[in-house]
């Protein structure tokens, strides 16, 4: 186990290194010049060149990357070109909002997905089952901006149950979390359904049933805990999907997280911020996958660490 963990940690570190390199190459290849963004419209040619020199952007690519990596190893993500603030500080200020949104999304997708999955499994083969499974596919087929705008229109504009955007209270969280979670809810309902069907077939459930235990009790006390375990492993993997979704969801709802930070930085070629957000996201994804791998063996003894 310790050896496995050590190997996976080294692997993860190498992946992050790779991500940093690929992103750096991509941003270096951008046709737009970040210095002109910093220098602004009234800058003279010499002001532009001065800024380029100050930032070390006149140096060869490999020197720039080495410098970035050197900083990174000391935990320094650099300073924003346009805001002049530490990237780490900018991300730290916005990370809580993003984490809150993700937590909300996980709760939403589990609540909706598991409920739908359980009902479908118990009503297997009926029209309820079919409509729930089609609904789960609608969930995975709907782009987040459409879901977000639709929820906004119905629940914020028409019914006025929730605020139309912004951040601060629990009411603000509901619609964005639903939007982000609806995709996962679609997948989880399908997983839950088949996992539940498997469990209901197991001998001990049949025994319990034969003993005359109430159906409700069987489902809640025996079937559910066993069916839910494989799903927990999936939550780690969800983080990767969320990382893409937050750019859209945060922009639709004006949620002050790192997705908005990244989007504004991309539009103005604020390279240190783009690098920082990409690395933080990649870190979260790698961590999520690692956790999923670690949780799996406890779930099902048949799955072994290879």
């Amino acid at each position: 186990m310790a050896a496995f963990l050590a190997r996976r940690l080294v692997q993860s570190a190498l992946i992050l290194l790779g991500v940093s390199f690929v992103t750096f190459v991509l941003l270096y290849a951008l046709p737009a010049d970040p210095v002109r963004q910093i220098a602004g419209r009234s800058a003279t040619a010499e002001t532009v060149e001065n800024i380029r020199r100050e930032l070390g952007l006149d140096r060869p690519f490999i020197v720039q990357y080495a410098r970035y990596l050197g900083g990174l190893l000391q935990g320094d993500l650099g300073r924003s070109y346009l805001q002049k603030t530490e990237v780490a500080e900018l991300i730290a200020a916005r990370l809580p909002a993003t984490l809150l949104l993700m937590l909300g999304a996980i709760i939403a997708e589990l609540a909706i997905g598991l409920t739908m999955g359980i009902i479908a499994a118990l009503r297997r083969g009926t029209a309820t089952d079919t409509s729930l499974m089609v609904a789960s596919f609608v969930g995975v087929s709907a782009p987040q901006f459409v879901v977000g705008l639709l929820l906004l229109y119905v629940f914020a504009v028409q019914l006025q149950w929730f605020p139309i955007g912004g951040y601060g209270t629990l009411a603000h969280l509901v619609l964005p979390a639903l939007t982000l979670g609806i995709l996962g809810a679609g997948w989880y309902s399908r997983m839950m359904r088949s996992s539940m069907i498997d469990v209901l077939r197991q001998d001990y459930i049949r025994t319990a049933r034969a003993k005359g235990l109430a159906r409700r009790r069987i489902v809640l006390r025996h079937a559910l805990p066993n069916a839910i375990l494989p799903i927990i492993a999936m939550i780690g993997i969800d983080i990767g999907i969320f990382m893409g979704g937050i750019v859209v969801v945060e922009s639709v709802f004006g949620w002050p997280g790192i997705g908005q930070l990244a989007w504004q930085a991309i539009q103005r070629v604020d390279i240190p911020i783009i690098m920082g957000v990409t690395l933080v996201s990649a870190f979260a994804i790698v961590l999520g996958n690692l956790l999923a791998d670690l949780v799996t063996p406890f779930i099902d003894p048949r799955i072994r660490i290879r």
Partner: peptide
């Protein structure tokens, strides 16, 4: 797989 797909696509 470690890249957030949408960020990569945007870049």
């Amino acid at each position: 797989m470690a890249f957030p797909a949408l960020l990569l696509a945007i870049c």
